[in-house]
Design a protein around this nucleic acid. Sequence first.
DNA 1: CGAAATAAAGATATTAAACTCTTTTTATTT
DNA 2: AAATAAAAAGAGTTTAATATCTTTATTTCG
Lengths: 144, 144
Amino acid sequence: MFSKSCEYAIKAMIYVAQKSKDEMRVSIKDIAKGTDSPEHFIAKIMQELGRKRLVLSVKGPNGGFYMTDKELQTSISDIVRALDGDGIYVDCVLGLKTCSEKTPCPVHHEYKAIKAKLIQMLEHNTIGNFNEKLDSGSFFLKNI
Amino acid sequence: MFSKSCEYAIKAMIYVAQKSKDEMRVSIKDIAKGTDSPEHFIAKIMQELGRKRLVLSVKGPNGGFYMTDKELQTSISDIVRALDGDGIYVDCVLGLKTCSEKTPCPVHHEYKAIKAKLIQMLEHNTIGNFNEKLDSGSFFLKNI
DNA sequence: CGAAATAAAGATATTAAACTCTTTTTATTT
DNA sequence: AAATAAAAAGAGTTTAATATCTTTATTTCG
């Protein structure tokens, strides 16, 4: 469904949200270990997320990545769009270039309903929500 | 969602179904042109579909690919499994290795319902159905 | 200010997917 | 039987995604 970069990004965003409470910052090394991602690769991804303001960062000693309430409102959908573009939002599920409402592919209408639910899910689940869910203990990210 | 190979395969299967009526066979060249796919690449894919008996073929002059009623019952799901494996059926949508019913990721339960509908869609849509739908004129594959 | 810690940026390497080319096998037709 | 048409098989190339390495810029702290 999503690219590896995007999956890493989602995990990293959740991780930073969990760890950056109380103004703490999280280093690349920490993120890489905590999410079991390749360090230099996740560094690139965090850079991109930073550029797009989905996460904040400061350089230098005691620096790292962190979030404020604003960044905690980032949805999974925002992360997906930032890393993978809007393919899953606009492309035909069978890959037909000409598929549209007017010239639908054979599964267009049926998939439309499913896609709508998928998008809804990606949009209303925010990093902040996850924080709460994870704190409650009914959801897990262990050995991410 | 699906690999390029898989998308080509779905298109090709639909194309063969449409063209192989009345015991006619369809050549690789014909499939490639008809589905706007790279000829040598689709050849490989058809080979694989043939090996897995999702389509039939005969070599030699006047040979090509074709389907009987049995192959027309192939579902999109069958094609996806044949080409892309069962990733979309079993993998966590966020890519978490440890996500399961007992240790769900934060969107596990929510995605479960969506995934079920997706799988249902892929399973009940068969190549044969498409044939009928396309004949009826309410669905399209033009400029595939 | 100088040293150290950290992210940012840039460049390179590896791998897997996508795609192409060549040869072989099989069947058909004449 | 020979010629031909087609798929099957094998080998190779290209491209994009993934991953790593190196250098630079920024910030903090002694």
